[in-house]
């Protein structure tokens, strides 16, 4: 579909890495909100599922100048594939039209019942944001943890073995907010009514979520900061997830810079 994806809203996220403490609450909130499965061996990082994933980075300096920081990484909900196409690379390659950019929200959708499990999108995603279900996570026949299915939320359908899943910006929360708005005789929702589980849960308020097309929304203001950047920006995938950091070494980690290519800004500004 070549139509410009903006149909009013373009939801995006800003993560302030100066505030992020690496506690991991966002990961848990995401998993609990979205019925993500958990296995006995979660250390198999190629096969476990974390829609929101913390990446740990260090400045590489010797003791005692070592510093640790974290990148929380949801799905980036890219706008382009980096080759001039107006769809993210995962959407471009999907053979089953199981993933698309939602024209109403800019959110990259994933329909599990449509997915054939070819994992092409997984290979195409430069952010490793897509996950394949190698097992039936919640199975009534052979439960991985007896009784745990009682905490499943009806707002997100549990996935079966053999399909790909990823962060949806808690799309069901948009639907929840819309239902509430309709009940209150409104068509549009307020900024605070729709936020993702990770943003809501972050105890340091490091994650801000909102409509990038609405100049009044916090996210639109935050991305104008000189400290704002995106992951692998030079791929031109136009992610809708932004980061803020006043630390040059953190910002430098966000892309593969050639020697001399990265321009430190913290000195220039502060």
């Amino acid at each position: 579909m070549e139509t410009k994806q903006t149909h009013g809203h373009r939801y995006g996220m800003v993560v302030d890495l100066d505030k992020c403490t690496g506690c991991g609450t966002c990961m848990i909130a995401c998993a609990a909100e979205n019925n993500v499965t958990v296995r006995a061996d979660e250390s198999d990082k190629e096969r476990n599922i974390t829609w929101m994933q913390l990446y740990k980075i260090t400045n590489g300096k010797k003791f005692p100048d070592t510093e640790v920081s974290y990148f929380p990484r949801p799905c980036m909900h890219c706008e382009e594939d980096g080759n001039g196409g107006h769809n993210p690379s995962c959407v471009t390659v999907c053979v089953a039209t199981a993933t698309k950019v939602d024209i109403n929200s800019g959110i990259v959708s994933q329909i599990y019942t449509r997915c054939v499990g070819c994992r092409y999108c997984q290979a195409a995603c430069p952010y490793h944001a897509r996950y394949f279900n190698w097992w039936d996570g919640y199975s009534l026949i052979k439960p991985f943890a007896k009784g745990m299915e009682r905490s499943l939320s009806p707002e997100v359908s549990p996935r079966m073995r053999g399909v790909v899943e990823k962060c949806t910006f808690c799309h069901h929360r948009l639907m929840r907010a819309k239902n509430q708005a309709y009940a209150d005789d409104r068509r549009e929702i307020e900024e605070h009514e729709y936020t993702t589980a990770c943003a809501e849960a972050c105890p340091a308020q490091a994650i801000t979520f909102g409509d990038l097309n609405n100049p009044e929304h916090q996210v639109s203001k935050l991305i104008k900061s000189p400290y704002a950047f995106r992951l692998l920006e030079r791929l031109n995938t136009k992610p809708k997830v932004y980061y803020l950091s006043s630390k040059d070494w953190v910002r430098k980690m966000a892309d593969n810079y050639m020697p001399g290519e990265f321009k430190p800004i913290s000195k220039a500004v502060g």
Binding site: H7, K100, D102, I103, N104, S105, I107, S109, I111, T113, R114, E155, V156, S157, T168, H171, H172, M175
Partner: peptide, 11 residues
């Protein structure tokens, strides 16, 4: 037609 987008009716 915009409501024929996948995520309008799927969760």
């Amino acid at each position: 037609e915009e409501n024929n987008a996948c995520f309008v009716c799927h969760k």
